[in-house]
Design a protein around this nucleic acid. Structure first.
Lengths: 215, 215
DNA sequence: GTCAAATTTCTTGTATACAATTTCTTCCAT
DNA sequence: ATGGAAGAAATTGTATACAAGAAATTTGAC
C-alpha cells in the first residue's frame, strides 16, 4: 500500500499543517513543494487536492491553494460537534458495548491513571485518546466511528492545549469512571450527558456567547 | 469560480455515482472518462482524487479507483449517524433558534403540507429537506451544519425510497409539528429525541440485529 | 510625482510523453 | 488438458511541455 508518492506528500503536508507549520492563508507553492519533495508538480498537485478535499486547505481557481487554519469560532464549533459525536457514540455504546469492550475501557483507564501518577502528560494524552476510541468502537457503527476518529484527529493539537490546565487530568479521570459506570449500567442518556460534558467542558458557554454576538 | 474542468468532472461523476449509474466495485477508467469528457487524463485523475477523498470511491495503488457504493450495513450506519446529527442540531437549536428561524420552519411546514394535499412527492421531498436544513442552521454551529448537509446529500437517493411507504408523509408531518412545538418550548431533550426517532424510523432495530450478528 | 495602461513574468491548469507495474495472453512442459 | 513461466498489452504514476490566466513591473501620459 501507498506506493504513490502523492499520498505520502499529502500525509506529510497534513501533519505539517496540523503542527502549525503554516499560517492561515499561506499559499502552498506547487513548485517550491515539488523541489522540497524532489518530485515534479504532478504528485504535489494531487496531494494538494487531498488537503482541499479534507478542508485543510482552500483552492481558489487560477490562484492556488491556501492553508485554512480554523479560527476560534470554528474551533469551538468543532469541539462542540466532537462533544455531540462522542455523546452519540456513548448513547449507542450503552446498549451495544461488549463485555470485552468494557474490559478494554477499564484497562485504558488504568493506564490513564498510571500516566497521571507518573505525571507523564504525553502518555496520558495517548491513553486518553484510546479510551475514547474504544467508545467510538463500542457504538457498533463503523461509519460513526470513522467520523469520530477523523474529528478527534483534527482536534488533537488543540485538545492538548486545553488539557494543560492544572488538575484537569484528575477531573478528567473522575469523569472517565463516571462514563464507565453509566456504560455498565447501560444508562444511555447518562452516558451521553456525561460524555458530552466531558468533551465540551467550557465550550458550550463560550459558543453561546459567540452565537448571540453574531445574530 | 470553477473554471477548472476537473471540478466540473468531479461534480458530474459524483452525481452519476449517487444516481446509481455505477455498480459497487466498478472501475473508473481514466482513459475512457477522458474520452467521454473530451479532456486529457490529468483533469480526470484530479476528479477521481476528489471522489476518493469524499469516500465515494476507493483507490488501490497501481490498480485504479473503484466506486464504493454503500452496502445495507453501511447505509443503516449512515442513517443512524444522520439521526444522531439531526438530534444534535435540534438540541442546540432549542436554545439558539431565532424567532426568524421558527417562522421559516412554520413556512416550510406549510409548504410540506401543501405538497401532501396535492400529492406532489417531489415537492414534498424538497420542502422536507429545507425543513431539516433550517434546523441545521438553527444549531448556530456552522461546522455541524456543514457536516449535516453533507450527509443529508449523501443519503438523498436512499431517503426517497424509504419515504415511499404509504402514509409515511402524513406521519412525517405530524412529527414535524411535534419538533416545532418542542423547539418553541426550548425543550432540548424532547427536540433531540423526536428528531432522532423521526430520522431513524426503523433503522435502530435493523442495526441492532446487524450488530449482534457481527459480534 | 502619480495613476493607468500595456507588457512581461509568474503561476496554475491541461496535454502529452515516458516509466513502472500489473494484467492478460501465449506458449511450453508435464 | 492443466499449470506455470515468459512475454505482450494495458494501465497507472510521474515528468515535462504547453496554454491560459493572474500578478507584477515597466512605461507613458498628465
Amino acid at each position: 500500500m501507498e506506493i504513490r508518492r502523492a499520498d505520502k506528500i499529502a500525509e506529510t503536508l497534513e501533519q505539517l499543517v496540523f503542527a502549525g507549520k503554516y499560517r492561515d492563508g499561506e499559499r502552498l507553492d506547487e513548485v517550491k513543494l515539488a523541489e522540497q519533495f524532489c518530485v515534479s508538480r504532478t504528485p504535489v498537485r494531487e496531494a494538494l487536492q487531498v488537503l482541499v478535499a479534507a478542508g485543510i486547505a482552500e483552492q481558489i481557481p487560477r490562484r492556488g491553494v491556501f492553508v485554512r487554519q480554523p479560527g476560534p469560532v470554528e474551533l469551538m464549533e468543532m469541539f462542540e460537534m466532537m462533544a455531540e459525536l462522542e455523546a452519540s457514540c456513548g448513547r449507542l455504546a450503552a446498549s451495544r458495548m461488549t463485555e470485552q469492550g468494557l474490559q478494554q475501557l477499564a484497562e485504558a483507564n488504568a493506564r490513564c491513571q498510571e500516566a497521571i501518577t507518573q505525571n507523564d502528560h504525553a502518555q496520558y494524552y495517548a491513553e486518553n485518546e484510546k479510551f475514547h476510541q474504544i467508545i467510538y468502537r463500542g457504538s457498533a457503527n463503523g461509519y460513526l466511528e470513522k467520523q469520530a476518529l477523523r474529528l478527534q484527529n483534527k482536534l488533537r493539537a488543540y485538545r492538548k492545549m486545553q488539557l494543560r490546565f492544572r488538575g484537569r487530568m484528575g477531573q478528567s479521570m473522575a469523569e472517565h469512571r463516571q462514563i464507565v459506570e453509566a456504560l455498565e449500567a447501560e444508562d444511555a442518556e447518562k452516558v451521553a450527558t456525561v460524555l458530552r460534558n466531558h468533551v465540551a467542558v467550557q465550550g458550550e458557554k463560550f459558543h453561546q456567547l459567540m452565537a448571540n454576538f453574531n445574530s
